[in-house]
């Protein structure tokens, strides 16, 4: 009886979280729309083809994809009640997320250092806003993780912690889904002008 009520409660809570993710999708969609409108507004600044490095973006993509994968494995480890393995995989997920964020920060710093900051052109403003917003979400995910992991370590995989872990994994997978469109629309289409 209580097990059924518990799973029903979890399903309701994850649905609520899913609705939040859908509204976040709309936020990203509006930033994508801005980017699409601004992509040729380079004024005297550089276009995408001048500043993007595809191997670097490929590396970013692979790091984030692997991190999404290890996050899924952590969820499975939690289902089989393996606290150590769950924590280990979550740690790996966080580490890969941190590497991703570091690589992105380096790219941003390099662009700003070369004088291609967000104030240079409409295209660069839209680029920094869109990709920066994704980076901000990744940072939020990492903060969430540093809060979630000690909780799992202390109390184990109790039902509230399982629910938290499930929602974190939804959030993390969602960020990888957004990244598919960032690498396709911003970077790949950015280096191949119409």
């Amino acid at each position: 009886m209580s097990v059924i009520r518990q799973s029903e409660h979890t399903e309701k809570a994850t649905f609520g979280f899913w609705l939040y993710l859908m509204t976040d999708c709309v936020l990203f969609a509006s930033l994508f729309a801005v980017f699409a409108v601004m992509r040729n507004s380079v004024w005297d600044g550089p276009a995408g083809v001048d500043i993007f490095s595809l191997p670097y973006v490929w590396l970013l993509t692979m790091v984030l994809l692997l991190s999404s994968f290890t996050c899924g494995l952590a969820l499975i480890a939690a289902r089989s009640n393996n606290v150590r393995k769950t924590l280990w995989l979550l740690g790996l997920t966080g580490a890969l997320g941190l590497v991703f964020l570091g690589l992105e920060a380096y790219e941003f710093a390099k662009l700003i250092h070369e004088g291609y900051g967000w104030q240079r052109s409409g295209f660069l403003s839209a680029f920094f806003t869109l990709v920066g917003m994704h980076g901000l979400h990744i940072s939020a995910g990492l903060i969430w993780l540093t809060y979630l992991m000690p909780k799992i370590r202390r109390k184990g995989l109790i039902s509230i912690n399982r629910k938290r872990l499930l929602m974190f994994s939804m959030f993390w997978h969602f960020l990888d889904v957004i990244w598919i469109f960032i690498f396709t629309i911003v970077y790949l289409m950015g280096v191949s002008p119409l």
Binding site: E11, F15, W18, L19, M22, T23, C25, V26, A29, S30, F32, A33, V34, A36, V37
Partner: peptide, 26 residues
């Protein structure tokens, strides 16, 4: 998920909103 698939419906609605937003803006 189990039926009715509320998550899928919410996703479909978000997809419609996103299409209107992006293609409308363009």
């Amino acid at each position: 998920e189990s039926r009715p698939r509320w998550n899928l419906m919410a996703f479909a609605f978000a997809a419609v909103v996103i299409c209107i937003l992006v293609f409308g803006s363009l």
